[in-house]
Amino acid sequence: MKWFTAWRRRPWAGYAVVLVALATIGVVYAGFSPRTAQATDSSASADDLAHGKQLFNQNCASCHGPNAEGTRDAKGNAIAPSLIGVGAAAVNFQVSTGRMPAMNPGAEMPRKTPVPVFNPDTIQVQYPPNATEEQKKALRQAAVDKNLNDIQAYVESLGNGPSVPSADQVAPANDKVGLGGTLFRTNCAQCHNFAGQGGALTYGKYAPPLLQSTPTQIYEAMITGPEAMPVFNDTTITPEQKRAIIAYIVQTRSEANPGGNGLGRIGPVAEGLAGWLVGIGLLVLAAMWITAKKPKKLKKQHD
């Protein structure tokens, strides 16, 4: 440890320690947030159902079983739940947010970029010759919508469940933001935070942030209760009230952060903590500089 003692005595060692500490605190603020896709629903023909079953077999059957009956491990614990009766809305939510197909099953399925067949940016489509970039994009979107509709129709055909809401059903009710805020703070904020930033649950589970969620996905989450989330059905919180909640979420997340960085929008505690850690750190640096030994050495008096 001699080298360490020597290092520690260097004039700049104190500054280095404080700087490293400040940098470590800064690194704690790091987040990730993948992208999202959209979908609508329509009626399904036999061809569509066959296509949906094919997509299901390719993407879902390995965990959920060939007949969507779910699978269990040797001890009888569920690996993947049965999808009979979960309905189209659950499929649309899970697939369009990229949570399913899951790559690495864990306590919580993270939102991520959807697999190519459900991703309008990466899906492989045959373009007609001379297609413009706009047309190509529309074609990709149409192909993704068809894939989503078909797999939803297939799962829906196994057992009825909540269906995908239409665009009108999820349009933010901007005249009822106040009611939406009240309902959100009463029923959602305990897990998702009052500004929709998400929060921790038990054993690695967490309530995800609502920053990327589309109105359709928010509505679907409320009626289907994905993973640990409770169900808020349409008779408990009416569709109109759900649109108010969506309006609150959409409006809250679009608000500017007057201080610059939102710091997770958890209010004055975060701001105060950052102020203390960074501010005190800088003050310590300043105090060290002011009181440090004067760099000029006493001139030898013997000459």
């Binding site: 009463t186 029923n187 209760g225 409770p230 169900v231 808020f232 059905n233 008779t235 408990t236 919180i237």
Partner: peptide
């Protein structure tokens, strides 16, 4: 709230 309003398994409300 009626009991039939609140029939979804896994539901919760304040």
């Amino acid at each position: 709230l009626t009991i039939s309003d609140f029939d979804s398994p896994g539901g919760m409300i304040t």
